[in-house]
Amino acid sequence: MNIQWIHVVYALLALGGLGAVFGLVLDIADKKFAVEVDERVTRVRAACAGANCGACGYPGCDGFAAAVVKGDAPVNGCTAGGAKTAAAIAEIMGVSAGSSEPRVARLLCQGAVGIAKERYHYDGYKSCQMASQMVGGPKMCPYSCIGLGDCMDVCKFDAIRIENGIAVFDENKCVACGMCEKTCPRHAIAVVPKDATVLVRCQNSDIGRPAVEACTHACIACKRCEKTCQYDAIHVSNGFASIDTSKCTRCGECAKVCPRGCITVIGGQVEVA
């Protein structure tokens, strides 16, 4: 094959030359039509976690940065970035960061395979949203984690995996953006302070027998925890117990008396009474 190299050179020169000329013109135009952008916006944008997760309530990190500089958004609004980002943004804006206590998403359900009773065997499309609408969901308990991973799909930080039919959270990876909390059709996920280690892991509103029949770890609203707590921190309402984290001293007494084992102490083993 006989390549006429001169044509190759012509082609390169012609297109390269055109590109160079346009580049030059655009460069001049860029200088001439430069728009004054508040340089703080660029710096705040750089300080953000940059996942565009939308946890701050603005459309992406760019929107958040613009709102922070405008004064509409709090400097610690980037939940994904946590305290470090808040401090960095506060420094740029010249204000104090305030406290942004570390938070983490936790599953308020222990209904793994063998614990929660199955209503039927679901073999359809892998979506909690869909399964939850099929005759009350595949588990007997209508408040349980379905375990098909809608939260896992929506998590941008790879912090959720499905084990034994329920969601398991990696608290080191979780940034408390709250996407899983919004996605869960059962509202079984809560973003709570990271140091709230004593948690009621059940939201079953049924009282007594229906709850017992649904799951071995279901809250039956017996109120033993409420009577045991010395700090007035745990109360039963709507058929299940819940803890006021601001009053709770993490003593774990409630977990010891719970006959159903639905109160857990993270980082400590508590025997079911």
Binding site: A14, F22, A29
Partner: peptide, 29 residues
């Protein structure tokens, strides 16, 4: 230069540069 076969890519280059220019101009004014 006998390079008619480069017509499409060269024209797209022109158009892209022009659009960039219009964008800068509009952003400003």
């Amino acid at each position: 230069l006998g390079l008619e076969y480069l017509q499409t890519i060269a024209f797209i280059l022109v158009i892209a540069a022009l659009v960039q220019f219009v964008e800068m101009f509009m952003k400003k004014s």
